[in-house]
Design a protein around this nucleic acid. Structure first.
Lengths: 350, 350
DNA sequence: AGCGTTGCAGCAAGCGCTTTCTATCCAATG
DNA sequence: CATTGGATAGAAAGCGCTTGCTGCAACGCT
C-alpha cells in the first residue's frame, strides 16, 4: 500500500541502507548510485516515514515554539521569524524542520503540558517566547522540565523571556522591559506630566512586573509622586485597556497621561479617552509598548517603545538550530527604542 | 539513560504489553494492575516515545494547520481557535494532539512542501486556512497531494478557502467573500458614492478575486460606472494599502471612497487619506474587510464586514477531529456581517 | 607482485512501541 | 466433577528506518 524504503531499494537495485544514506546525504555514495536511487524515489513517489526515522535515529525534526497567544501579533511576529529560521520550506536552513507552534494562553499548566508533549516527540529544539508566569511552584516545575528536555538533547532558547535558572543551560534573549518602561515614563515626565495612570498587564507575569518597575523607577528618579490608585491590572487586550482607562479616569479625572502595558492595551485606552470626551494628547497623553505594526496607524500615532520582535525571533531561531553562537553567558538583553509620536504631548496645565 | 516502556514494565512487574494497554486505555486491565503500572510510570517519570508509538500504531497525534501569515491576526485567530479544539492542553478534546502551525507566506510551493512534511509525519489531520493560489498547475499539485494525504488517512479540512476538487473529499468551510464585497460596495453606493477606488489583494488569489467580484457585481447591479484605473493590486499589508491609496488619489483626486481588500490594508489607506490632507469620512470614506480586533479602534472606526474567524476555526477544528459532522455535501458557506461604523459617510458633493 | 588503502555498498541489529494470538486463571454451568 | 467461557496478562512479531561493522573491489605504494 504505502511505499517504503525497501520498495525504493528494490527498484533501484540497492540495499535499503544505501537508499537511507542517499536520502540523508551523510555518507559517501557513488554519483551513479545516488542518481538511480533518486530516480526510484521519484518514480515511486516515496515519502519518508517521519516517525520511523525519528525512532531509528533518536532525533526528530520537530521544533516547538511556545507562545502565549497566537492571535496576538506580538507573538505572531516572533513565531513567524523563528519559523523562517529553523528551516522548513522557505527557510535558509538546510534540513526541513517542522515548527510546532503551541498556544499556552499564558497558562503555566498548559505550558508544562506542551513541554511534555514536545518531550514525547523528542523535539530537536524548543523556543519559549514571551513573559513567564511568576509563581514559584510553576517556575520550578518548568525549570525541571526544561532541564530534562535539555538532557535529552533538546536545545532550549528563551525569546523575550527572562533567563531560567542557570543549570537549565537555556539560552535567553531577554527584552529590556524595565528599561523600556522607564524611558516611556521619563519621556512623559519630561513633557511635564505628574499625574499618570498605569495600566499593567496580568499579575504574576514577569513582563508585567518589569514594565511596571521601569515606570516606578522613572517616577522615583524624578521625584514624581506615585499613587496606588493610579495603577490598574488587566489582561493584555484592548478591552482591558478600555475598561481600565475608564476606571482610572473615574478614580482621578485629573490624570494627564495613561501608560499602557502594551500597544493593544493602549489602543483600548485611546478609545476610552475619546469616549470620555477627551482629546489625545491635548487632554490626555497615551503611550503603549512593543510598537506593533498597527500602532503607527492609531490616531494620533502611538508613542511607544519598539521591540525588535522579528530580529529577536530570527536570532532565537538560529541559535536553536545551532547556526548562531549563543551570547556570552547564554544571556543577551535586547533593548527597545523609544518612538515618540503624536499620542503624547505636554499636559494642558503644566 | 532514558526510561522506556520496558523499564516501567519491569518496575511494575508486568509485561510491556500491559503497560502499553494501560497507557492507551483501550483494553481491559485489572484495576490493581493498572494502578501499579501508573505508579511505576510516575515514579520513573516516564514519557512515552512519540515516534516509536506513531511507528507501531501507524498514526500520529500531529495536526497540521497551514496559514499564509502567522503574524496576521486574521490567521492567528483562526489558528488559535482550531488549536483549542483539536485538543492539546486546554482543549476539550480527549487525546492530546499537537498542532503544527505552518507559515506558507502565501506561496503555493511552500504549501506543497509543508504538506509533504505533514505527510511524512503521518499527520492525523490537516487544516488549510485562507485563500488559495489560483494557478492551475499549483492547484492541481495541491489537489493531488491532498488526495494522497486523504488516502493515507489524514483528515483534510479547508477553513476560509474555496472547496477543493470533489474527489479530494476535503471538507470546506468557505467564507462568502463575494457576498461580503458586494454588501460593502452596496453600502457605499447607498450613501451616494459613485467614484470608488478599490485596493485589491495580490493577484491569483481566490480571496482577492472573490472580493473584487463582489465589488464589481454591486457596481453593475446599480449601474454605477467602473473604471480600470480605480483598481490597484497590492499585498495584504498596511504599507500596500498606504501606497495604493496614494496612487489611487493621484489617478483620480475626485474619488469619494476607497474600498480596501481587508482591514489591514484599510488602515494603511486611512493613513494615506489623512496624509493627503483629506478627512475620513467627510472627504473620503474607507471600508475594510474581516473586522479584525483593531478595526473598531481605528479613528474613525472602520466600516467593514465581520467574518466569524474564531467560530469558523473552532468548527474546522472539531470537524478535523471528527467531533462534529461535516456539513452536507462537505461544503458550508459562512457569511460575513456588514458592520457600519464611522469611516463611511455620504460623499460631500452628492 | 604483494599489501595496505581507500571508496562504496550490504548485512543485520536494533530503536521503543503496538497488537494479534495464545496462555492462564477462576467462576459459572451442566 | 468435568467443561466452558469470560477476563487478564504475556509472548512475540513486526512497524520502517538508521548505522556500526563487514566485505569487496580497485587503487597506489614499495
Amino acid at each position: 500500500m504505502t511505499v517504503t524504503l525497501a520498495d525504493v531499494a528494490a527498484r533501484a537495485q540497492v540495499s535499503p541502507a544505501t537508499v537511507s544514506r542517499v536520502l540523508n546525504g551523510n555518507y559517501p555514495v557513488a554519483a551513479s548510485t545516488r542518481e538511480r536511487v533518486l530516480r526510484a524515489v521519484d518514480e515511486l513517489d516515496y515519502v519518508l516515514n517521519g516517525p520511523a526515522s525519528a525512532l531509528a535515529a533518536a532525533t526528530s525534526d520537530l521544533v516547538g515554539i511556545l507562545v502565549n497567544d497566537i492571535a496576538d501579533p506580538f507573538f505572531g511576529i516572533m513565531a513567524g521569524a523563528i519559523q523562517s529560521e529553523i528551516g522548513g520550506p522557505g527557510g535558509r536552513a538546510g534540513g526541513e524542520r517542522l515548527a510546532v507552534v503551541c498556544n499556552t494562553g499564558g497558562s503555566a499548566e498548559r505550558e508544562l503540558t506542551y513541554l511534555t508533549l514536545l518531550q514525547r516527540q523528542r523535539a530537536a529544539a524548543v523556543v519559549l517566547t514571551g513573559g513567564a508566569v511568576e509563581n514559584t511552584a510553576h517556575a520550578e516545575a518548568v525549570a525541571t522540565k526544561l532541564r530534562k528536555l535539555a538532557d535529552a538533547g533538546t536545545k532550549i532558547v528563551l525569546c523575550g523571556r527572562p533567563p531560567a535558572p542557570a543549570d537549565t543551560d537555556a539560552v535567553a534573549l531577554t527584552f529590556d522591559n524595565r528599561g523600556g518602561g522607564q524611558q516611556l515614563t521619563e519621556h512623559l515626565i519630561g513633557l511635564g506630566h505628574r499625574r499618570m495612570g498605569y495600566i499593567a498587564g496580568p499579575e504574576e507575569r514577569t513582563t508585567t512586573r518589569h514594565r511596571l518597575e521601569g515606570h516606578r523607577a522613572a517616577l522615583a528618579a524624578h521625584g514624581v509622586p506615585d499613587n496606588p490608585d493610579w495603577t490598574v491590572h488587566g489582561r493584555y487586550d484592548r478591552r482591558a485597556g478600555y475598561e481600565a482607562t475608564l476606571e482610572l479616569l473615574r478614580r482621578d479625572p485629573e490624570l494627564t497621561a495613561v501608560v499602557a502595558a502594551n500597544d493593544t492595551v493602549a489602543l483600548g485606552a485611546c478609545a476610552a479617552v475619546r469616549d470620555s470626551g477627551l482629546r489625545i494628547p491635548d487632554d490626555v497623553s497615551v503611550v503603549g509598548f512593543d510598537d506593533l505594526p498597527f500602532s503607527i496607524d492609531a490616531v494620533p500615532a502611538l508613542t511607544t517603545v519598539r521591540l525588535p520582535l522579528a530580529d529577536a525571533g530570527a536570532r532565537a531561531g538560529r541559535i536553536a538550530m545551532g547556526r548562531e553562537e549563543a551570547p556570552p553567558g547564554g544571556i543577551a538583553t535586547i533593548r527597545g527604542e523609544l518612538m515618540v509620536r503624536g499620542s503624547t504631548g505636554a499636559p494642558k496645565n503644566s
